[in-house]
Design a protein around this nucleic acid. Structure first.
Lengths: 234, 234
DNA sequence: GCAAAAGTGTTTTCAATACACCCATGG
DNA sequence: CCATGGGTGTATTGAAAACACTTTTGC
């Protein structure tokens, strides 16, 4: 505990009308692109931390929920379509911002690459970029710490069959999916056993199409079955 | 989205100096007592919601983190020793409180029954009571909804071997542990298979003592092994 | 024809499941 | 002695793990 006030003193200070602290939202939007896990960051245009990269987000207004706020951020600031969002963790360290006390509630958002390519719009007012989660650039505020926590949270969640289905809505190859598992769990999986698991247990079905135009033998394309139970597959 | 302001209007309103919203903490302290899962609630002494039961918590001061704050609540308001705490979810519905906007960050706390009995102190300034999670009394504010979410969160977490070890530090019987699983997962488990799993996989060890004084054959007492890997056991 | 990447089948191991009888205590 | 609740062993099933060669394409 960093505070040495008694309970009575604290009660008094909480009656203080100068209640100078704000709430902000921050979102880590994740996607998977060519077997790489990527997160969307935004470049700060003004001081403090001008030129540094930060998580998109916004100060919370008194007339909206955190979820409404972050949905607006996704739409207005990032120009992205509605996506799957989960609340993650609320950070309240005292020195997060320089001037004032700001508490941050964080989210992860998931968007599949196909939807992304279709809906992506270039905006000249904000500079946003996808970064491989293993190559995060120089970040402002405490966003480095927060990004790491969001990545950890994302890694835990992606093992879940329902989350995978969001990120791979259709027409993916099994080697592609396998590479994601191998990255996240930091293991290597036998190709035959991996296929057996996903196909025999009924999680994925063959679409009949193949993935041509790459080197080597074309891979079959799969999609997740319509009705799969939510489960951690590894 | 419940807000129809444009981005520009929202930016303006967030510059407004009358930033009238507060943050509070709320904690659901859980324990297991004679095979029943219980949560600690506090009776409200003043209006609004006088006489109703609520989760312990406190308005966040500007000079403390959420975690410091909730640690103080546990110590000062509840008179309980330091316990394992996890942050859970932040609730930001607009109508949570009647007079002003208050956002709540919630926590779960875990305390084992042995520690609890040793350290429990009767306080006359607050009325606190343990309730079976299947018999929650009439609650104030939106705490009913929050309590349900905390119970769900707790149920998901308790399946984890490390969490169980916190709640059962030593000298528990296997039938006792089994009953918890059966309640939470709402299934019935074969006694022999349950024992086999926990003993053969090395999660628990026989202490050599037995649990005398109850009806029927005395049950052997077990404790979790010193070095168990974190895993969902069911 | 060769390099690159994907597809395939069998055996072994180990945990999960199903199932019925005996044992220790209190009253 | 009987009611209550706890302890024990075996056989079956099914998924996980280990393992090497063949197939399809681009160049």
């Amino acid at each position: 505990m960093s505070v040495l006030l008694t309970q009575k003193e604290k009660n008094m200070s909480s009656i203080n009308t100068d209640y100078n602290q704000k709430l902000e939202t921050l979102i880590g939007v994740f996607t998977i692109d060519k077997g790489k896990i990527k997160i969307l960051l935004m470049r700060k245009k003004k001081d403090p931390y001008k030129g540094y990269w930060i998580l998109p987000g916004e100060i919370l207004n008194t007339n909206e929920t955190l979820e409404d706020n972050i949905t607006d951020v996704v739409c207005d600031k990032l120009g992205l379509p509605t996506m799957y969002i989960e609340q993650c963790y609320t950070f309240s360290n005292l020195n997060r911002h320089l001037e004032e006390r700001v508490v941050a509630t964080t989210f992860i958002g998931l968007i599949d690459n196909i939807t992304l390519v279709l809906k992506k719009q270039d905006r000249d007012d904000v500079e946003i970029e996808w970064f491989d989660i293993n190559a995060i650039p120089k970040t402002g505020y405490d966003h480095d710490k927060i990004i790491n926590k969001l990545i950890e949270y994302f890694k835990k969640r992606i093992i879940n069959s329902n989350i995978l289905k969001i990120l791979f809505p259709s027409d993916f190859t099994l080697p592609e999916l396998q590479k994601i598992y191998e990255q996240i769990l930091n293991i290597s999986i036998d190709r035959r056993n991996f296929r057996k698991k996903l196909i025999n247990l009924g999680y994925v079905v063959d679409t009949g199409d193949v993935n041509e135009g790459y080197m080597g033998r074309p891979a079959k394309l799969y999609r997740f079955s319509d009705d799969i139970q939510e489960r951690n597959l590894f």
